[in-house]
Design a protein around this nucleic acid. Structure first.
Lengths: 146, 146
DNA sequence: ATAAAGGGTACTTATTTAGTGCTGTATTAA
DNA sequence: TTAATACAGCACTAAATAAGTACCCTTTAT
């Protein structure tokens, strides 16, 4: 199956935990408590998120992390990119970006670069879902395809 | 990164190798030769594809596999489902299907079931791309978002 | 100065995926 | 009816990836 890493899942949980206090500052241990996730893992995720500028970090005593943007302006694609790096489907696509060397079946491979179509479709799909969408309460349902 | 398994990639290579001889019968060793992929692996992929009814298998001497449908009517989603099972994103979604037990953060998890939105979006995206789309020649370019 | 809190790196462990091999079953042809 | 061919299914091994952990460094408020 296609799957998103656990860390990306954690990232969404952590980011959406800000939902009622967007703009507020929380330390990694606070976030670990609030999300009930193990602290070292939370810490790792927070680092990745701040590197990707989804969170703004403040160092030193009384430091912590706060959202760089509102949840409605952060997409699932942003989170996945932050945690797992650029969205890439199959080795061919990865290599196509990294270097121009073709895969071992280059000659016979009619697919060269074709996965990029799929890649783009998936990225577009992920870009349509914001974190706010993922946290919206059950009494405010949301159409899946709209 | 989100990625599709190598086997799914192989499956696409194998299926698209029929492009100019759709409806024809090939044995697994023929397909291995044509695609230049290792035979045991091809064999494994073929079994999965015929279980999913994307290929029709004929047993016995002079047997082999032939396409159950035209390439334009087989989607990337079909292939991924055949090889990797149902598209599932994160453990929450998987468990949500298998049993009704909630994830360990159930109480605090505002995301319960929300990944399904993402799932559906991705599935829709993958359903829009047919194998014929993936094999079309470079001199017949194709818009990515159309 | 010291304590609190983030930053970075490297390592270990666990999980998943890929690859291989063996045995069974169906079909055809001699 | 027997031998050869080819798919079916299962189980095992090995390799790759991801997750989790630990350690030490840097920054900043008190």
């Amino acid at each position: 199956m296609i799957k998103i890493s656990k860390l990306a899942d954690y990232a969404v949980i952590i980011l959406t935990s800000y939902v009622d206090e967007q703009g507020q500052l929380f330390s990694s241990s606070q976030l670990a408590q609030r999300t009930k996730l193990p602290e070292p893992t939370v810490s790792k995720v927070l680092k990745l998120l701040s590197q990707a500028n989804l969170l703004h970090s403040i160092r030193g005593a009384n430091g912590g992390y706060k959202l760089s943007a509102e949840l409605k302006n952060i997409t699932v694609l942003d989170v996945i990119n932050a945690i797992d790096g650029t969205l890439a489907i199959t080795a061919c696509v990865e290599h196509a970006n990294a270097n121009s060397e073709q895969c071992s079946h280059a000659g016979s491979c009619a697919l060269k670069g074709r996965w990029n179509i799929v890649n783009t479709h998936v990225a577009n799909a992920l870009e349509k879902v914001s974190l706010q969408d993922m946290v919206c309460p059950v009494n405010e349902p949301r159409t899946v395809n709209g």
